[in-house]
Nucleic acid binder design. Structure first.
Length: 109
DNA sequence: GCAATGACTGGTA
DNA sequence: TTACCAGCCATTG
């Protein structure tokens, strides 16, 4: 089962995400210039097994439904910034947009 | 070719 | 803070 061109593009972007950083479904769709968040999510559901899927989360920082514990373990190992409760990613600091440019994300505690 | 589906998003209550 | 609603689009049946 070969991935569709769109799926292949999505997977390529995800594999480029550096450790300790995350992106949203919407960001990927915006970068590809086609499809939408729902479409990206569908691709991840079918082909995400081979990529760091835990670095792709929802716009509000929520972890993947049904895989929260597993994603949390990766975040802890990569040093991904989390909120105080530890159930969501700190989007203000962890969000990555390296494909466009590297915005000065000031890491302030 | 048409209709349904989904690891979403932003706005409103 | 959480809950619900309508729009979104490639993929699948």
């Amino acid at each position: 089962m070969l991935p569709t061109p769109f799926a292949e593009a999505v997977l390529d972007v995800i594999e480029a995400i550096p450790p300790g950083r995350v992106v949203t479904y919407g960001d990927i769709a915006e970068f590809l210039g086609t499809g939408g968040p729902r479409t990206v999510g569908t691709v991840l559901a079918r082909y995400g097994s081979g990529v760091p899927w835990w670095r792709v989360i929802r716009a509000d920082g929520s972890l993947l439904p049904g895989h929260e514990a597993r994603a949390l373990a990766h975040y802890r190992a990569e040093g991904t910034p989390m909120n105080r409760r530890g159930d969501r990613v700190d989007m203000a600091r962890a969000r990555w947009a390296g494909w466009s440019e590297l915005p000065p994300i000031l890491v302030q505690t």
